[in-house]
Design a protein around this nucleic acid. Sequence first.
RNA 1: GCGCCCGUAGCUCAGCGGAUAGAGCAUCGGUCUUCGGAACCGAGGGUCGCAGGUUCAAAUCCUGUCGGGCGCGCCA
Length: 556
Amino acid sequence: MTVKDDVARLVGDALEEAQRTGALPAAAVEGVPIERPQNPEHGDYACSLPLKLAKPMRMSPMAIGEKLVALMPLRGPFDAVQVAPPGFINVRLSEAWLTQQVDLIRQEGPAYGAVHVGDGRRVQVEFVSVNPTGPLHVAHARGAVIGSALASVLEAAGYDVQREYYFNDAGNQIDQFNRSLYARYLQHFGREAELPPDGYMGDYMVDLARELAAEHGERFLEMPAEAGTAELGRLGLARMLAAIKADVQLLRVHFDLWFSERSLIDEGQLDRAMGLLRERDYVEEREGAVWFKSTSLGEEQDKVLVRSSGVPTYFATDVAYHYNKFIERGFDEVIDVWGADHQGHVSQMKQVVGALGIPSERLTLIVHQMVTLKRGDQVVRLSKRSGDLITLRELVEEVGTDACRYFFLARSPESHMEFDIELAKEQSADNPVYYVQYAHARIVSIIRLADERGIDFAEGDVSLLTHPAELALIRKMLLLPELVEMMARSLEPHHLPHYAAELATAFHTFYQQCRVVSSDPEDAAITRARLKLVDAARTVLARSLSLMSMDAPDQM
RNA sequence: GCGCCCGUAGCUCAGCGGAUAGAGCAUCGGUCUUCGGAACCGAGGGUCGCAGGUUCAAAUCCUGUCGGGCGCGCCA
């Protein structure tokens, strides 16, 4: 239970008591709202319940507040509660309690920040899932960072998390890919060949053809064209997939499972999903095709599941995939991270899940907006088909993994973000990334110094920590578990970089004002206490960075 | 035309219906004999696109409107 929950209970218990004894009239309440006031004069936590109860209770907010505060015992972490106009209950934490948390944080170590909102429930996070017909680009990097950070946060919040990449290895686009590759392959050997009209034009296809030619020679020329195209395509696809794996690894993104679209067809899951939809009367045959009757669910149009040619659409396999996620594998919750270009499919996907008999709230679609990439003044448009502009790899190699992760993560998914490469490089010294990491390196070097001087602070007395900067740092450290809980509930990991920067500031401010390792013998006790604080700060900062899959360097 | 997203400081962006709307960068001004100055402290800078509405309380919710992005296929 977080402190915030404890505050809510403190107020909630008082309300119950007041209503039971008749001190306050009966009124329906939906939860106890607890906030963190921005003005420190308002204490550590604030509750606006009296303001909300004023109307149903027909009393002034201040009077309600007074009644409640009178019933709130100053136990445990709490030092003072008071009512403030226009009707807030402000709660302040006790300094003695705050300092004790330093020891507790050190005890928890790298596990600090973990909460139990997930309660072991199984959640699948599917992200990136770009077709392996070309290299990953900048927008994909954004999805990769959002998805992986969200997965880490959910894990810290007590969920059993599965990270998954769904890749297309069947269908039209793969045919296009195969034909494009075959054409490049023929061209490599000086044969006359034209790319298909909707083919993949990028130079990477030329490179891929050359690599395969180097490895396999003219083998595919000797086959009938159709077989050659298919054979070559299969090898090319495997290479593209391997390249994508390498690319996401550059961003420190790991997947538990790479899920093949084709396997849904081969292993009968598509048929079973279609059968279930048909059974539930959501399928209709018309004009030689098989349709999902989404208009019956309020959608604007029906969707084709199986073309008149007998070939299932991507939509059909997507239905099968979600059937597989919920019904065959039994995930409690599923989160899909999509780019804005897929926004139009969100309501259809939700309807499909409902049509399969699954409460559609169990599926969450996180749609992130596009990334506008800039090099100075030049706007670079992102298109996989028309050519190879800035790839994920180029970006990461130029800007660095940590900076990429930090910047992509710091923007909320729905914001249309701008990424100026020149700026990111020029400002690297003033980068918030390095600011946060520098705080960690600084901490480690202080502890290193203490080690060199043979200072043992295991018995440090944390009650000596009374300086405002010390207490401010502790308060900031205590925010992490609440933040993890909030992020897991809202599925918004973008708060993490902002928190890390605030924590770093709290540390730097403390460092500026409080000498840690002092050579004056009279300071021995406070030195030991502060070393404990510094060590706890290292724990929390390192945890914040690890949740973002960022490096926590010992030196820079 | 319809759907989704965005519009907050010079720039890039936070902001859970609550108290005086914040951060970084940029600008200006301070701090330094000792633990890492990649630091700290301070200042200026805002009609939260605009107009209505709901509410004790709106940057936040609703409606409309203007501007920008992305979609609207028997493509994925």
